Simulated assay, not measured.
Amino acid sequence: MPERSLAAPKPALIEKVLMRCAGQCAVCRAWSHQTICESCLGLYARPLPRCWTCAARLPPAFVGRPRPQCGRCLQTAPPLDRAVAALDYRFPWDGLLQHFKYHQALDLRESLLERLNTALSAAEVEAPDWLLPVPLSIERLRERGYNQSHELAKALARRRGLRCKPEMLLRVRHNDRQAGLKLEDRAANVRGVFAVEPLLAARLRGTSVALLDDVMTSGSTLFELAGVLLQAGVMSVQAWVIARTPEPGDE
């Protein structure tokens, strides 16, 4: 009888199987069939009113208003047609995202992705022609071992039936970490850092794009990328992020 060759299971399949197995909640450590239990999701993942174009949290009075915007976006319109954030970058999501980003904790990907997918469905966003992750520099990629935004974008594209071609965007030079800079210095730090891949630029002209990143702080990185895409002939740009840092005074 001929031997049967057993192909190694795909990592995505292993991840899905593990997600169904009982274990500890990543937040409260209670016994749970999910990476984050329902109790913690109810406590820490409640939807909040957010600015239409930068996803900053807005006061409760803005609930139900069509296309609400914060004062900053009303004063200076960002180059985004829409911004959606699933969560606030605070406990427990700040620690979980740090773990996912710097320690390759891929077991958290599906739970984080589910939060974003739920937020996108609630926001009734228009499906873009392309879903593109924020690119990393070669130096940062070597340091981390993978691009966390790329991992999220690939999985979300499969789930929502979107085209995802990460190589369309380039990071043409290495820059300082945004996290170590003052808010007013972040825009200068990313200026001229990104470009559209010249061999693929024609495929972007006249299309709509959603940019995906794990965390949005000042918005400088996503605004810079959006400007590059608009200059390349893209018609509209959205930003989809797992978490948005609270504005001063939101605590």
Rank of each mutant, 00 (worst) to 15 (best):
Q34S: 14
R90A: 15
R144Y: 00
A55L: 04
L120H: 06
L229Y: 08
R177G: 11
I138R: 11
R205W: 02
V134P: 01
E38I: 10
F194A: 04
L169K: 00
V172N: 09
A179P: 00
R50K: 10
L96E: 02
I14Q: 12
K182L: 14
A153L: 07
N117Y: 05
W31Y: 10
L204T: 08
S32Y: 03
E110W: 12
D250E: 15
P198R: 10
S137W: 08
L106K: 07
L43I: 13
L96P: 05
H103A: 10
L162Q: 13
A30C: 13
G227A: 11
L58H: 00
L169C: 05
E224A: 13
T221Y: 06
V63T: 13
A55F: 05
S111A: 15
C28P: 04
Q148Y: 06
R203E: 14
A239Q: 01
G206H: 09
L199I: 03
G161Y: 09
R4E: 14
T207L: 09
I138H: 12
E167P: 04
R203L: 14
A56L: 14
G161Q: 03
P166H: 07
P60D: 12
F91G: 01
P60A: 12
R57G: 12
H174T: 14
D176V: 13
F100G: 00
A119L: 07
S236C: 08
W240F: 06
H103L: 06
D214H: 05
R142N: 12
V63N: 10
V215T: 04
A7N: 10
P47I: 08
V237D: 04
G180T: 13
K165M: 13
E15H: 09
A195G: 07
C51R: 00
L162S: 03
C54G: 05
S111F: 05
L97K: 00
Y44H: 15
C28E: 04
P78E: 07
R177N: 10
P248Q: 06
R50G: 04
E197L: 06
R159Y: 08
E251K: 11
W240V: 04
R144N: 06
V196I: 04
E151W: 06
